[in-house]
Nucleic acid binder design. Structure first.
Length: 506
RNA sequence: CGGGCCGUGGCUCAGCUUGGUAGAGCGCCUCGUUCGGGACGAGGAGGCCGCGGGUUCGAAUCCCGCCGGCCCGACCA
C-alpha cells in the first residue's frame, strides 16, 4: 500500500454504513456469504463470539431453572395450521420438504418419493414443542415445564444480510408452560430481564425494554416484549424478544392438565429467543473505522501478544519472554475465568499483525521486543483507544493489571454506547419536529439521521401505518418506565396515555 | 415476489460500442533485505470471462433463455 491509510476499513461509517458493516465482517474474518442464497458461513472468529454468547446465556438460563432439550428440525405441515395467527405470520417464509429420495434420471438427480404430508423446516418451534408438551402434561404437578433449545431455524428471507437477516440462523428458543397466567407472565418478564442484563453486562449494550405494539407482535402471542438497541447509524435493532403466549398455543396443541380443583385447564405458555443477530448488533454498535471492537466480557480472546523479532540473535529470548508473559497472564482471571491470551509468532513483518488484531477487535495488544527485554517492559495498547497509543509497562506488573484494564474497556464501551444512545434520543411533541427528525438532508444517499423519538401515540394501528408509509419509522416499543404521562398524539390529535419509542429499524 | 443496475483470477475492476484466443491494482507463493505500526526488491502461481443455446471461419465482446448478486419496494429475529 503506497499511500497511507488513516483507517483500516473503507468506506468509513459516515460514508456508507451498510457497506462499512460488510467490510467489518470481512476484515475481522467473522463470516461470509455461502453459495446457497441467503445462507452464511460463520467463520471461527465469528463463531467463537457466538460460543461465548451461548456459554453466558446458557448459564443464565440454567440459573433461572431452565434445562436444555432438542426438538425436530422438521415440523408436520398440519401442526403449523393449528394456530391461525401463527400461520399467517410465518407461512410466507417457510421452506418445505416434499420428498425424501433422489433418483438418477438422464444423469441428474431428481426428487422422488413424495411425502404424504409435507414437512416444514422450523421457522420457530412453538407448534412441535406444544405437541410434545401436550403429551407430557397431565396434571398441575407436571408444571411448570421450563425448557430451552439451541438450534438453527429457517426463514426464507428475500433480502439477506450477514448476521442480521439470513435464511438460516442460529438461536436459542425457550419454551415454557405454566399452571397459571400470572406464573407465565412472570416468566416472560423474567427472561426479558435476563436478556437486558446480558446485553448490558456482556455486550456493553444499553437496551430499551418494553412491549411491542400489536402490529409488531409475534404471530400468535398475546404480548411481545423486547430489548431494543441503537446502533451507530441511529437505527433500532430488536436484540431479543420474550412472548407471553397466553393459552393460544396450548389450545392449538391441546396442552391440558387437571388442576388443583380437579378441573381440566389449558396451560399458559411463553417463548423467548435471541439469535446470531446479536453478533450483527455487536458489530454495528461498537465497531469503528478500524474494525471490530469486542467487549472484553464477550471476547473469546482478551489479549494478543506480538513478539517483535527483528534480529535472529535475540529472537529466541523474545519468544521465550512472550510465552512466559502469556503464561503469567493466563494464570490470572477475569470475572471468574482465565484470561484468554494468544501469542502470534507468525513470521510477518511490520504492523501487519498489529492491524490484524485491531481489525479483529482484540481488547488488549501487547508488544514485546528486544528493547523490552533489556528494560523489563512490554508495550500495551487498548482497542478502545487510538491505535497508536502505547504504554510501556513493567512486565512484572502486567498480569495483575489485565483484568482491571479489561473492566475499564468494558465500561468504556458501555458508556460510549449509552452516551450515543442518549444523544440521539429525543422527546418530540409535534408532527413537524417528528418528520424533520426522521427526514435525511440527502434523500439520494441518506446520511445518518434520526434516532429514537419518544412521542405520544393514540394507540391506533392506522397511525402506525401512516408513519411507516411516510417515513419507514415504526414503534419499536412501548417502554415500561418513565413514559406514562397524559399527552396528545401529534399524528391524530387524540389523547395519549404515554410516549412510545419510534425509530427506523433493522 | 415487482422495478432498476450488474456478473471477467481470492478482492476491486478495465477490456465489450467497432468479434481475432485475457489485463491492471491489491491479495497469495518463493528468495533476499526488513520488522517498535499496513515495508521494499526480484521472481512466480492463479481465469471453461456466471450457465446453456444461437450467429460466425472465429465470441469475454453480438442475439435469446436461464441462474446469481446488489439497490429500491413488500416481509422479517
Amino acid at each position: 500500500m503506497s499511500e497511507k491509510q488513516k483507517c483500516a476499513i473503507s468506506p468509513q461509517r459516515a460514508e456508507d454504513f451498510p457497506e462499512w458493516y460488510q467490510q467489518i465482517i470481512r476484515a475481522a474474518d467473522l463470516a461470509e456469504n455461502s453459495e446457497v442464497r441467503g445462507c452464511m458461513v460463520i467463520k471461527p472468529w465469528g463463531y467463537a463470539l457466538w460460543e461465548r454468547m451461548q456459554a453466558e446465556l446458557d448459564r443464565m438460563f440454567k440459573e433461572t431453572g431452565h434445562r436444555n432439550a432438542y426438538f425436530p428440525l422438521f415440523i408436520p405441515l398440519s401442526y403449523l395450521e393449528k394456530e391461525a395467527a401463527h400461520v399467517e405470520g410465518f407461512a410466507k417464509e417457510c421452506a418445505v420438504v416434499t420428498h425424501h429420495r433422489l433418483e438418477a434420471k438422464d444423469g441428474k438427480l431428481v426428487p422422488s418419493g413424495e411425502l404424504t404430508e409435507p414437512l416444514v423446516v422450523r421457522p420457530t418451534s412453538e407448534t412441535i414443542i406444544g405437541a410434545a408438551y401436550a403429551r407430557w402434561v397431565k396434571s398441575w404437578r407436571d408444571l411448570p415445564i421450563l425448557l430451552n433449545q439451541w438450534a438453527n431455524v429457517v426463514r426464507w428471507e428475500m433480502r439477506p444480510r450477514l448476521f442480521l437477516r439470513t435464511a438460516e440462523f442460529l438461536w436459542q428458543e425457550g419454551h415454557t408452560a405454566h399452571e397459571t397466567r400470572e406464573e407465565a407472565e412472570i416468566e416472560t418478564m423474567k427472561m426479558l430481564r435476563v436478556y437486558e442484563t446480558f446485553a448490558r453486562d456482556f455486550l456493553a449494550l444499553p437496551v430499551l425494554t418494553g412491549e411491542k405494539s400489536e402490529s409488531e407482535r409475534f404471530p400468535g402471542a398475546l404480548r411481545t416484549y423486547c430489548i431494543e438497541a441503537m446502533v451507530q447509524d441511529r437505527k433500532a435493532i430488536q436484540a431479543g424478544t420474550s412472548h407471553f403466549l397466553g393459552q393460544n398455543f396450548s389450545k392449538a396443541a391441546g396442552i391440558q392438565f387437571q388442576g388443583r380443583d380437579g378441573s381440566l385447564q389449558h396451560a399458559w405458555t411463553t417463548s423467548w429467543g435471541v439469535s446470531t443477530r446479536l453478533i450483527g448488533t455487536l458489530i454495528m454498535a461498537h465497531s469503528d473505522d478500524d474494525g471490530l471492537m469486542m467487549p472484553p466480557r464477550i471476547a473469546h480472546t482478551h489479549v494478543v501478544i506480538l513478539p517483535i523479532t527483528p534480529k535472529e540473535d535475540s529472537k529466541a529470548a523474545v519468544l521465550e519472554a512472550a510465552e512466559s508473559l502469556a503464561q503469567a497472564i493466563r494464570a490470572t482471571t477475569f470475572h471468574g475465568s482465565a484470561v484468554s491470551v494468544e501469542v502470534d509468532t507468525r513470521d510477518l513483518g511490520g504492523g501487519v499483525k498489529s492491524w490484524e488484531y485491531i481489525k479483529k477487535g482484540v481488547p488488549i495488544r501487547l508488544e514485546i521486543g528486544p528493547r523490552d527485554l533489556a528494560q523489563g517492559t512490554a508495550a500495551l495498547s487498548r482497542r478502545d483507544h487510538p491505535h497508536k497509543d502505547k504504554e510501556f509497562l513493567p512486565v512484572a506488573d502486567i498480569p495483575s493489571r489485565i483484568a482491571g484494564i479489561l473492566d475499564e474497556i468494558q465500561s468504556a464501551l458501555l458508556a460510549r454506547a449509552t452516551s450515543f444512545r442518549d444523544t440521539h434520543l429525543r422527546r418530540l411533541d409535534t408532527k413537524e419536529e417528528f418528520y424533520a427528525f426522521f427526514t435525511p438532508a440527502n434523500a439520494e444517499k441518506p446520511e445518518a439521521h434520526g434516532g429514537f423519538a419518544l412521542t405520544h401515540w393514540n394507540g391506533s394501528a392506522a397511525v402506525e401505518e401512516q408513519v411507516k408509509n411516510d417515513l419507514k419509522v415504526t414503534i419499536r416499543c412501548i417502554p415500561f418506565e418513565g413514559s406514562a404521562e397524559p399527552g396528545v398524539c401529534p399524528f391524530s390529535g387524540e389523547p395519549s396515555q404515554q410516549r412510545v419509542v419510534w425509530a427506523k429499524s433493522y
